[in-house]
Nucleic acid binder design. Sequence first.
DNA 1: CTGAAAGCGCTTACAG
DNA 2: CTGAAAGCGCTTACAG
Lengths: 331, 331
Amino acid sequence: MSVTMRDVAQKAEVSIKTVSRVVNNQGEISEATRQKVTAAINELGYRPSRIARAMVTQRSHTIGFVIPDISNPFFSEVARGIQDTAQKHGYNVFLCNIDEDATEHLQILYSLADQGVDGLIVFSSLVSEKDLHHFAATFRPIVAVNRLTTHPDISQILVDNYRGVHLATEHLLARGHTAIGMLSGWAGVAAGQIRRLAGFKDALTAGNIPIRDEWIIQVSPTMANGRQSTRQLLTAYPEITALFCYNDLLALGAIRACRDLGRRVPEDCAIVGFDDIQLAAMLTPALTSISYDKHELGKLAVTRLLEMIDNPGQVFAPLAMDVSLKIRETT
Amino acid sequence: MSVTMRDVAQKAEVSIKTVSRVVNNQGEISEATRQKVTAAINELGYRPSRIARAMVTQRSHTIGFVIPDISNPFFSEVARGIQDTAQKHGYNVFLCNIDEDATEHLQILYSLADQGVDGLIVFSSLVSEKDLHHFAATFRPIVAVNRLTTHPDISQILVDNYRGVHLATEHLLARGHTAIGMLSGWAGVAAGQIRRLAGFKDALTAGNIPIRDEWIIQVSPTMANGRQSTRQLLTAYPEITALFCYNDLLALGAIRACRDLGRRVPEDCAIVGFDDIQLAAMLTPALTSISYDKHELGKLAVTRLLEMIDNPGQVFAPLAMDVSLKIRETT
DNA sequence: CTGAAAGCGCTTACAG
DNA sequence: CTGAAAGCGCTTACAG
């Protein structure tokens, strides 16, 4: 990082401005000087500083991406879509984890803003709505992924949570199950949590199955919690023959719990997940799950964010990704 | 990003330099002016621009992290360690994927350098040694994670691959296996590939078992490849009773393949993996694997990188993480 | 087609 | 204890 535009200009015996013109491919330049400058650039190994450029253009060509936990395989699949798309458009992405362990969520968001990111994708439902609104007051644009938010300036990319769970529950009903439990997610702003719960209840009602609230357990969606909650649930209510899980991680934990309890899957207890993570299809037994394109979800979020960056002030309607049911071996 | 130091200075009726002093907590300042300035900062909601600061200090407090694929659960666990540690030290991290699909690896590295990162952690063995050396000629510091490199300025953080596989193979021998196959990783600069293969062969030799090269298959380490290669291997050589896999993903694919072929695990075919990803312990059957602290691996890499940033020119000895064997249900 | 000047928002010597 | 000036490496009007 020591050779600057000035060095190139000196070597090529032109002004700095002329170097800038060939670097940015702008304006009319005589072929002779262009070649002189290009030669000097190559000889010196000059590379323009993105920081200096960002300083004057007020555009850093970086974005921030906030998730609960990159080590969660679901989020990491989306992250790949984010990263690939951003890179394709010449943007670099800052990664930030905000989960239960994190403190000072607002500070983390501000540190990204201080860093000069051109926009932010928030995929963590653990960032409170209050914090997000506070932050949105001074920073934009923001895209929220699969979380409900009421802020008018925040654009939303959603997954059709309601329909997904409805499909899954109908599938269980069609298989003859009438005693269906649910492992639900966090309470709060997670779009998934609210809409998936609604889809579950509505599907039961539509199938004339009364809702048993004690069969619905709300937990933080990890494999360990899935295992533990399922053990408790099936021990307390052995009559349950099927389980819908908020996400695949909970479902994998539930499968494990069934095995702990000596219950066969799917014969003694059918299990459905949500998200269809890469592993889900490969495991034994392969998991029945609600599926959608996670790489595409990341791509949509970035595309939307770049649109917002290029069109300040414009309002975009929420977008919901379509989902489908993948029937495998656990139902 | 519109309120600047100048605004604060005006409001507080002091010079810009004085504002800078209170922001950076440096120099002696009278309590009165400090309070005046602090009040102005809060009132205006001033936040210093990291870009402007980076411009003059030549330190951006950002680092780059290059991996093959963030959606791979193994890498994402390490990424979490990287991210947590960097954040704790006030650094933000740029994430970059460089896998088989990526073209122009060098361009991706340079784009990170252009972005002004203070250092780089390279965890992708898919970046060729040639590209890395070329890049290292103009950029430093660089930390390489679990890859062999001969560049004197590149610091190495390794995993004790050799010992890990030696342990695993000894374990299989102790269980009475004599016909042991191996699913190996990519060829090339991956430290894992070379050292793990060596550990495997040496352990066999130490156990007086002749090495059967046709039982060693080299594949890109994905679950799908593990499934397919295992099918082929066990079909061609049904006498094989145990399989060591380069990583857990291959091992999970191998388990699946055994099931496809009607072979019970571990009764008909024992399987051992490497990395001990979070899922490995939770699955059915739970995977026997070589384990080490992946969060810690990320932490070590960042810590080393920050040391290099703070001590330019200093040479650091390679560091190798200790490993252990976790015996579970697949052996 | 090419250049000199100002400025992006800070920090770093250097004075006072 | 506090401030005026120069400069980090670029781009943006404005001239010529």
